[in-house]
Write a protein that binds this DNA or RNA. Structure first.
Length: 112
RNA sequence: CGGAGAGGUCGAGGUGAUCGCUGGUGCACGCAGGCGACUGCGUGCGCGGGAGGAAAGUCCGAGCUUCACAGGGCAGGGUGCUGGCUAACGGCCAGUCGGGGUGACUCGCAGGACAGUGCCACAGAGAACAGACCGCCCGUCGCCGCGAGGCGCGCGGGUAAGGGUGAAACGGUGCGGUAAGAGCGCACCGCCUGACCGGUGACGGUCGGGGCACGGCAAACCCCACCCGAAGCAAGACCAGACAGGGGUCGCGUGGCCCGCGCGAUGACUCCGGGUUGGUCGCUCGAGCCCACUGGCAACGGUGGGCCUAGAUGAAUGAUCGCCACCGGCGCAAGCCGGAACAGGACUCGGCUUAUCAACCUCUCCGACGG
RNA sequence: GCCCACGUAGCACAGUGGCAGUGCACUUCCUUGGUAAGGAAGGGGUCGGGAGUUCAAUUCUCCCCGUGGGCU
């Protein structure tokens, strides 16, 4: 997951949040918009607010989600996606549980 | 051996493999910009760096920055036994006094209640220049009784020892004394007070004097002593960009006020409306860390030598597997299964407080047993 | 990251150093053929938690926990 595959500027996040469509799963909410990156590479960004938990819990959610996406191939071409963690995401334990939920979300985003 | 008290040290699993992240640096390639040197972004490879003891809570103190910020006063806030340490502190060290504990030890926002004001509910006779409800004692009146004496919704007086109320009842205990009592007298304790001695001081000790007049609450107002200008790195500085101006006041500029000071009419301030989804700096060398010697009971200081140790910005340390080490359970054993906390920088330090896993060490006290 | 404010009955709020209250809601009864409205009676509180000051703390002091808001 290199830099070009992630949303890295506040401007990019806001663009997706304003224009994107909502797709939910049990523990995450995805906002999807047409990609604007060069070469139509699919990009993703994570939002984990303080509602989820303390700093350790928030970092863990982001790291697990990133790791699963890295190893299982995410980001359909031509999409920009913001993944927002719901409060319940803090209760997810381990890569397998995160992956189970994200797999469903990925399929629905790919079909969008 | 058992129980208890005080303090300190180290770590925050290690290692290997594979796949990854971050920003720094070197090289290569691609894209964009520039006449160019080159710059920015992305990708790949190499090299080295990459969270804590609390990074947390934001409870104190500072550095730093801006407010034109130098001054006086009032108001406001803070601290509160003494001495010391420190850049500073509400922190730390050493002591004093008071409470707790057999003890080691521990806890304490621990100045002033004759500078003033205020408050002490309920209960109780009486609650702050106290107070006779019951009781006790004396005298007197009446009644009963042979008498000693007894009785009284009688009267007058004495009495703060006893009962009872209360958080608290105007020194405590004992002896004497008295009609009953009372510091009325005496002894001890306490209190007040004077002198002397020790100590930098808080304070302590000794001797003498006074029968005692002094309730509690200042985390109630307050008084006294000392300290404090305000805001906070989203401070602030610079660069680039966007937009649309219009109205009000005559004075405005700190954190509340006054004085003082400064600025001001092509000016200053303020309100309404509009615009602002950038970048660079601040940003890590600092009251810094380690070692040795040294002054000090200690906190801490001095001298010399060595070291450079995260600087991100939608925000980086992760995942999987193996081995070793730690803890728990089962098992004769080999081994098997399970567990491993609290929690992550966001300008930086010094403290405090709170959360929490494990190992080790030192000193001390009490009890029992043995020598 | 920084700075504020607030936690009292099921809900919304008063209160202040001495018994914790108001409105709505709730329960029972009256009224009605029945319901609503109305009337009467009643129950319900670790005053967010823990220490401390005080004779006495919801109130004063300190430390925690939670909730909400503001600052680019």
């Amino acid at each position: 997951m290199t830099k070009s595959m992630r949303l890295r500027r506040r401007r990019e996040f806001l663009a997706v949040q304003h224009a994107g469509s909502k797709i939910g799963s049990r523990h995450f909410l995805a906002l999807v918009a047409p990609g604007t990156a060069v070469g139509s590479v699919g990009r993703v960004g994570f939002t984990v607010s303080k509602r989820v938990g303390n700093a350790v819990a928030r970092n863990r959610v982001k790291r697990l989600a990133r790791e699963w996406l890295r190893t299982h191939g995410w980001v359909p071409a031509g999409r920009d996606v913001v993944v927002i963690a719901k409060d319940s995401a803090a209760s997810l334990d381990g890569l397998a549980e995160v992956g189970a939920d994200l797999a469903r979300l990925r399929d629905r985003v790919a079909a969008w």
